[in-house]
Structures are given as structure tokens and as C-alpha cells.
């Protein structure tokens, strides 16, 4: 241990007397250098210059040197995502809006497909072909359950309509 560090804690009686550099619980996963204490003072890699919007965690001062540009935030889901990034990573205010944005994004995806003149083949995307090939019984069960639920909902709604009319 260097003398500067020892002097810094000289006012604390007994500080570091039991320190054992070999007791590194993260060994061998980590080759401990002590540089953790320099925090962000390391030499940074060259920064990527991007053209797309990147949302940044509020738990870091700046964006990382490189980043992915897969799908920039856009539309309603993008607005929700921007809102989510006002909150820290330990907060439900961050993660729950992101999950909501993901669900909204699914509908945006369908609308975007249709706008481009493409009707999404949802059954194909779900892998229905393989379900038919390897799990015919399971598929039949799912179809029956879906049919029963749909019929029940339709009946319930039509009853409500009738009762509203008679009232």
C-alpha cells in the first residue's frame, strides 16, 4: 500500500492493519489493479460520432465511447422511452415505462408494416409451421381455447347490447 493512502487514513486507529491483498473475493474473475479508485480517470477510447438519437442512463456523465444504433427511439414509444430515461436504473419509473413502450412499439410495428403495404404474417412470425409439425395436439388445444374464449366474449357483449336496448 502506498504511503499517501496510509497517511490519508492515519487518523483512523488501526485502519488497514488486517488488509490482505490476497483476499480478493472476485479472484480469479478479476485481476485486481487498484485502478477502481481512479474512477473514470482512465484513458478513454476514441468516441463514435453518430447521427442517431441515443438515450443515456442518468447514472453516467456522458455516453459511452461506442454504442449501437439499431433502432433509434421514435413515435409514441419513443416519447415513453425518453420519459423513462429521466429516472435512474434502480427505479421502477425507469423500467416499467420501458416495458410499456415495448408493448406500444409492437402496435407501431404493425401499423408501419401496413403503411409500407405489407400485411404482417403474424402466424408465420409466431412459428406456426413448426407448431403444426411437432405439436399438433397442443396447437389444436390452443385453437379450441381461443375459440371458446372468443365465443364467450362475443356472447357476453351481444347480451350487454341487448339488455341496453331493452332498457
Amino acid at each position: 500500500m502506498d504511503t499517501t493512502t496510509i497517511n490519508r487514513y492515519a487518523h483512523i486507529k488501526g485502519w488497514g492493519v488486517d488488509a490482505d491483498p490476497h483476499n480478493e473475493p472476485t479472484y480469479p474473475m478479476k485481476n485486481y489493479t487498484g485502478d477502481d479508485h481512479k474512477r473514470l480517470g482512465y484513458k478513454k477510447p476514441v468516441a463514435q460520432h453518430g447521427k442517431v438519437e441515443i438515450l443515456k442512463s442518468n447514472e453516467r456523465p456522458s455516453i459511452s465511447a461506442v454504442y449501437g444504433t439499431s433502432v433509434p427511439p421514435s413515435g409514441v414509444s419513443g416519447k415513453i422511452r425518453r420519459y423513462a430515461f429521466k429516472y435512474g436504473e434502480g427505479s421502477f419509473g425507469h423500467w416499467l415505462p420501458l416495458l410499456l413502450a415495448d408493448r406500444v412499439n409492437v402496435w407501431e410495428g404493425i401499423i408501419s408494416d401496413i403503411r409500407k403495404g405489407r400485411i404482417p404474417n403474424i402466424l408465420g412470425e409466431l412459428g406456426i409451421k413448426s407448431e403444426w409439425k411437432y405439436n399438433k395436439k397442443g396447437l389444436a388445444k390452443k385453437v379450441v381455447v381461443a375459440a371458446v374464449i372468443t365465443t364467450a366474449v362475443i356472447l357476453l357483449l351481444s347480451r350487454k347490447k341487448k339488455s341496453l336496448k331493452t332498457a
Binding site: M29, K30, N31, Y32, T33, D35, D36, K38, R39, L40, Y42, K43, K44, P45, I54, L55, K56, S57, R60, I63, S64, A65, V66, Y67, F85, E89
Partner: peptide, 20 residues
């Protein structure tokens, strides 16, 4: 190059993810 990569923690790089 970051502190974590230099210590062999390549799964914990600090310069590859701005979002978390």
C-alpha cells in the same frame, strides 16, 4: 481500455453501453 476491461472484467465494460 476502461478500468473494468483492464482487470479482465470484459463483461462489464464501461465504454460500450450508454443506456445502462
Amino acid at each position: 481500455k476502461c478500468v473494468f476491461c483492464k482487470q479482465g472484467l470484459y463483461g462489464n465494460c464501461h465504454e460500450s453501453n450508454p443506456e445502462a
